[in-house]
Design a protein around this nucleic acid. Structure first.
Lengths: 207, 207
DNA sequence: GAGAATATGAAGAGGATACTCACATTCATT
DNA sequence: AATGAATGTGAGTATCCTCTTCATATTCTC
C-alpha cells in the first residue's frame, strides 16, 4: 500500500490533531463497534457508546456531528478489515484446501472480537445519504472476491455468482452462529467449515 | 395436519372463547411475528403490534399479560412449525439428494413469510423465566434432527454433532441472506443450496 | 503564560414505551 | 327481546431514554 492517506475522514465535525484526541476518537469507534455488536442497532445509543469508551458524551459530539456519522465510521473500519481478509485469502493461486483454510482463519479473526457486528451493519443499521453507495459497493466487491475464488476452483462457468452468494452466506452463517455460542475457537468446527467449503467447491457429483 | 389441539395456552390472561376472540388472538400473534421479523426486537412494541393487527391496544392486553407473554406465544408457534418441517424432511429413509431437496424446500417455506423471525427469536428476543428451558429444548431437538440426518448419510461416527451444527447454521445463513435480498424464490439458489448440503454430506475426500 | 485543542456532564426538549381503566359494543342463551 | 358474559376500545398515565447543546474546565503546544 502506498503512503496511508488519512482516510477521507468520514464526516467529522473536527479533525483530531493531538495524540490524545486521536486516541479518544479511536476509543469511541471501538466502543461503538462493541455496543453495536452486543446490543444491536436497537441498543446503540450515543450515551452508551460514550460510557463504554470511558469518555464524556460531549467528547463524542466534539468529533461526530451525529449518530449516523459514527455508524458510518464504524462501518468503514469494519468493511476495510473484512475486505482485506478476503483479498489476502484469495490472492495468488493456491490449492483449494489451503484457500479454504486461510479464508476460514481470516473470517474467524475478523469476527471474533465483535461477533455480530457484520450482520448488524449489513442488516439493521441504517445508511442514509451517501453511505448507501458505499454499502452497495462493499457488497459488490465482497462478492467479487468470492466469485473469483469460485471461478478458480470450479470449471463450470455457469452460476458463479449464485455460488459465490451461497458460499459467502453459508460461511457467514456458520461463523455467526459459532460466535453466538462461544465456539469460534473450537478446532473441530474450523475443520468442518473448511470441509464444507472444500466439498462445495470441489463439487461431489453423487446423485 | 391432524386435529390441532389448542396448545397448552402459553401464559394468558384470559382464554378466548368465541370465534371472534380466537381470530383476534391469532391476528395479534401473526402481526407480532411480522413486526418482530421486520423491525427486530428493537422495534417490537405492543402498540405497533396492535396497530399492525388492526386491533386496539386494549384487546392485546386482554389476552396477553405483558410483552413477554406475547413473544413466547410467537416463539412457540414458530418453533413448532420449524420442527415439524425438519421432522418431515428427515423422516423415513430416502436418498441424500431427496432429503436435501425436501429440507431446503421446507426451510424456505418456513422462512419466506417472516424472513428473519427465526434469527430474532434465537438471538435478540429475551426469554426470561420458564421460556429459557423451552428455548434450550428447541435448540436441542432442532440439532438432533440434523444430527440424525448427518449420521444417516455419513458413516463416520465422529464429529456428528459438530457437523450438524455446521450444516444447520450454513443452511440458515444462506436462507436468511437470500430472504433479505428477496431471492428466496430463485430456483438456481435453491439448487445450489441443495448442492451444498449434498456435497458436504457425501463428503469430498481430497486433502 | 497565551491561545488553541480537548474534555466535561448537567440539562433541554422531545419522543417512545408498557400498560390501565372506564366505557362501548357484540355475542350466546333463554 | 332481554340479560349477562364475552369482547373490544383508545385516551391517558407515568416512566424512561433519546440525541444533542453549551458553558465551563482541563490539558496541551509553542
Amino acid at each position: 500500500m502506498s503512503t496511508r492517506i488519512a482516510k477521507p475522514a468520514a464526516r467529522m465535525r473536527k479533525q483530531p490533531r493531538q495524540a490524545r484526541s486521536i486516541a479518544t476518537v479511536e476509543a469511541i469507534i471501538e466502543a461503538g463497534a462493541h455496543v453495536l455488536s452486543e446490543l444491536g442497532w436497537a441498543g446503540f445509543s450515543t450515551n452508551k457508546v460514550a460510557e463504554a469508551a470511558g469518555v464524556s458524551i460531549g467528547s463524542l459530539y466534539q468529533y461526530f456531528p451525529d449518530k449516523l456519522a459514527l455508524v458510518e465510521a464504524i462501518r468503514r473500519r469494519h468493511f476495510d478489515h473484512v475486505l482485506s481478509v478476503i483479498r489476502e485469502a484469495s490472492a495468488e493461486e493456491k490449492p483449494l484446501r489451503q484457500f479454504a483454510r486461510e479464508l476460514v482463519r481470516g473470517m474467524i479473526g475478523a469476527h471474533s472480537i465483535h461477533p455480530t457486528l457484520h450482520q448488524v451493519l449489513l442488516d439493521e443499521a441504517p445508511g442514509d445519504r451517501g453511505s448507501r453507495a458505499a454499502h452497495a459497493s462493499f457488497q459488490a466487491r465482497y462478492l467479487e472476491h468470492y466469485a473469483a475464488a469460485v471461478a478458480q476452483y470450479r470449471n463450470r462457468r455457469k452460476d458463479t455468482e449464485t455460488m459465490a452468494r451461497v458460499l459467502s452466506s453459508a460461511v457467514e452463517g456458520v461463523i455467526h452462529n459459532a460466535a453466538r455460542r462461544n465456539m469460534l475457537d473450537a478446532p473441530e468446527l474450523q475443520k468442518q467449515l473448511v470441509e464444507l467449503i472444500s466439498a462445495y467447491l470441489s463439487g461431489s457429483r453423487a446423485t
